[in-house]
Amino acid sequence: MGLTFKEIVEKVKTQFPDSIVSTQEEVIQPWFETKPEILNKVCRFLKDDIELDFDFCESISGVDDTKNLWVVYHLTSLRKKHLIILKTKTERENSQLPTVMDIWKTADWQEREIYDLYGIKFDGHHDLRRILLPEDWQGHPLRKDYKFPEDYDGIPLR
């Protein structure tokens, strides 16, 4: 079997001493939070290191905790059969994070979905457009402060 959560975090810590903001172990599934500025480097390390080998980016999710916007990465190693949950947060206004689509191609559409529904801009993404909603839709529905519109292009919605 693969590495445990502690071993993975330890490896990241040795490589990037001040990249980890916090770790949560006393929960059902442990996770760690990393600084957004260094996110791309941490992800590259997680993928390229032979022992970590996180070749498979299973899911990227946006989360709104009413204070900040978070992006959560569920990574899996198909060869080593271990998992890690990586989080990073950004402000509500002008929310911006680096893209990871140069590391895992699957991030392309998943980041577009997060941009569409949360309005987080991913720096370096090659084609950041809305994907599920129409191009001229106002606002980002999964934000907690989203107000349901009265009409869309003059068509009443209520």
Binding site: S59, S61, V63, K105, T106
Partner: peptide, 30 residues
């Protein structure tokens, strides 16, 4: 493929976040 459910609870009857990893969505991106 893999259907993933990412659920966040705040202790109430409704989830705070209910995300689905939809396999078709990700498969189509290729």
């Amino acid at each position: 493929g893999i259907v993933g459910f990412y659920i966040i609870s705040d202790g109430s009857e409704k989830p705070v976040r209910a995300k689905v990893r939809a396999p078709s969505f990700i498969n189509l991106s290729i």
